[in-house]
Write a protein that binds this DNA or RNA. Structure first.
Length: 528
RNA sequence: GCACCCGUAGCUCAGCUGGAUAGAGCGUUGGCCUCCGGAGCCAAAGGUCAGAGGUUCGAAUCCUCUCGGGUGCGCCA
């Protein structure tokens, strides 16, 4: 809809146009301060320019009214235009809001180490990535979801060691000496019990079996992580194993050397990441010849770019922000455009419980599990908490509040509006198809406000996706639901001369709420 | 010390590609059910947009500095 307006304006203006929604709805549906920027170029009075422009735009059929006010050009869409659009939307439910962006995007998210269950911080990135993918797909991108599995290195050995020791101590009752660093937490005990059962006691008699135990435990953890994700409706198209990448390392190192990207010093190989804006060069091969973690990431991103997507998005925890420069540097050395890699940082989540800060630490084992929160407040509420906040800001919430908040949760507010519409149709003994072609002519201003708000869903989705600000969708849904609740309160529907018109309007609102909720991974309720 | 994120109502947060009178939810106070779902609606109180400069027709929004909070600065992953 916005695009149609934009195109209409373009016919008359040869200048970048900013189109916005006026704060005061009396000003119309759209407004542009274009006259101010044109005034600078043309060196003329903005009021005058606005007036001339308004004059030209009045010829467009889709506009009912075009005003010039204090330099702004305010535009009001015609009722016929809005009505026809609503009819189209209701007849093409699946297509409403669908775009044709066409970009192919590889979205990497979660990528939590397979050494434990997902905690609440992971959940934020997981939900964000999932919804970004849902909306992106709806607006027409071809988005593939990928999980990078860090299944190599010391941490996996540590996992094995932890299970091995827990098995000896808690299951077999042997004396053990705990090292300084190991994984704690109940899940390690569970794993140990299972492992003794599945692998046999003899595996716990000799440290030499630790790598085998580690491998087994890692697989179990991946299964667990996937179950955690599935419980909130999150899935992946690809899993890439870090371990499997290293066989390509020699080849990649050669490529880097040919590009002049690496050098040898102190018996180690360094990436010249400072050449591309990093603060220092980074070791990629240790003295003993083993590649570092960065090497794995270099291979991974090289292969990503080889796969030829238009754009790449990684959602990382904010604690990895220092890592961006070196990965981008490597990409640049391969001759690819590092701009195509976009890193979205998901900031910390702090939890309170009854006002007390909850320290989250994987090693300490007292972190809050995503599955526990899901069990307490439900997947939908968990999704909503994260989606009402932008990703790059710290988020703090109290578990106790969330528990008691299930009644005042905005999801209920939105769903209630949706359910009310279905209740109306039921009471009226009608179905949507009975009213889609009804003309809305004759309805009042508030009805058209509501209709217009329902119809802007596509541009809200597009804007939210393009700006990576998913909270715009939740804001919109709350606003639309609020408008409908008020409208419902002010207007009687059934038994009035406007019954069919108002049912159509209600159906349109419900459609936008439903599609919007679907984008958030939440199913709209017809009854509550 | 350097880098990144943040500082907006009592609390949790929107608004930030500069635009018209700074918003929501919760909390507080007071109204609205003989009537389609009161899980709703209406109203009130509550703000030096951390502070100071700058840029310009115009700044919560952009720039600089200061103060305050968080995170990162491994050849761990």
């Amino acid at each position: 809809m916005k695009r149609r307006v934009y195109e209409a304006l373009q016919k008359h203006i040869d200048h970048p146009i900013v189109l916005e929604k006026p704060k005061d709805k009396n000003f119309g549906h759209y407004a542009t301060p274009i006259a101010f920027s044109l005034a600078k170029v043309l060196r003329r009075n903005p009021m005058q320019i606005a007036e001339e422009l308004a004059e030209k735009l009045r010829e467009e059929e889709m506009f009912e009214k075009v005003d010039a006010l204090k330099g702004y050009v305010n535009i009001k869409l015609s009722q016929n235009f809005l009505n026809d659009y609503a009819t189209w939307a209701l007849e093409h439910e699946e297509a409403f809001g669908k775009g044709d962006n066409g970009q192919s995007v590889l979205l990497e998210f979660v990528s939590a180490n397979p050494t434990g269950p997902l905690h609440i911080g992971h959940a934020r990135g997981a939900v964000w990535g999932d919804v970004l993918a849902r909306i992106g797909t709806h607006v027409g991108c071809r988005i593939e979801r990928e999980y990078y599995v860090n299944d190599a290195g010391n941490q996996i050995y540590l996992l094995g060691l932890s299970v091995y020791l827990a098995g000896r101590e808690a299951v077999l009752g042997l004396d053990v000496e705990w090292p300084e660093e190991y994984y704690r937490g109940e899940y390690i005990l569970d794993l140990a019990r299972e492992a003794v059962e599945a692998l046999g006691q003899e595996m716990f008699m000799d440290e030499g079996f630790i790598p085998e135990i580690a491998e087994w435990a890692k697989e179990r953890m991946l299964e667990l992580i996937n179950r955690n994700l599935a419980d909130v409706g999150i899935f992946f198209d690809h899993y890439v194993s870090e371990k499997s990448l290293y066989e390509k390392w020699d080849e990649i190192l050669t490529k880097l050397a040919e590009a002049g990207a690496v050098y040898e010093k102190d018996g180690k190989w360094w990436l010249k990441s400072t050449e591309h804006g990093d603060e220092k060069d980074r070791v990629v091969v240790r003295e003993d010849g083993r590649p570092t973690y960065l090497a794995g990431d270099i291979i991974y991103h090289y292969l990503k770019f080889e796969r030829g997507y238009d754009h790449y998005i990684n959602i990382w925890g904010a604690d990895h922000h220092g890592y961006i420069a070196r990965v981008k540097a490597a990409i640049a050395f391969f001759g690819y455009d590092p701009q195509k890699l976009e890193i979205i940082l998901s900031q910390m989540v702090s939890l309170l419980k009854g006002g007390e800060p909850y320290k989250m630490s994987k090693r300490a084992g007292n972190f809050i599990l995503m599955q526990d929160i899901v069990q307490e407040i439900g997947a939908d509420a968990l999704r909503f908490i994260f989606l009402t906040k932008k990703s790059d800001t710290h988020l703090e919430f109290d578990i106790e509040d969330l528990k008691k908040e299930d009644n005042s949760n905005p999801i209920y507010y939105i769903n209630y509006a949706h359910a009310r519409v279905f209740s109306l149709f039921e009471k009226a003994g009608k179905e949507q198809k009975d009213v889609v072609r009804v003309s809305l002519n004759g309805l009042g201003e508030d009805a058209y406000d509501l209709l217009f708000t329902a119809l802007i869903l596509p541009e809200v989705l597009e804007d939210a996706f393009e700006s990576r600000q998913l909270q715009k969708v939740t804001d919109y849904l709350k606003y639309l639901a609020g408008l409908y609740h008020k409208f419902y309160y002010d207007n009687r529907v059934i038994g009035t001369p406007y019954e069919e018109k108002l049912l159509k309007l209600s159906a349109m609102v419900a459609l936008s709420l439903r599609v919007g909720l679907k984008m958030l991974g939440i199913t709209a309720m017809k009854k509550m």
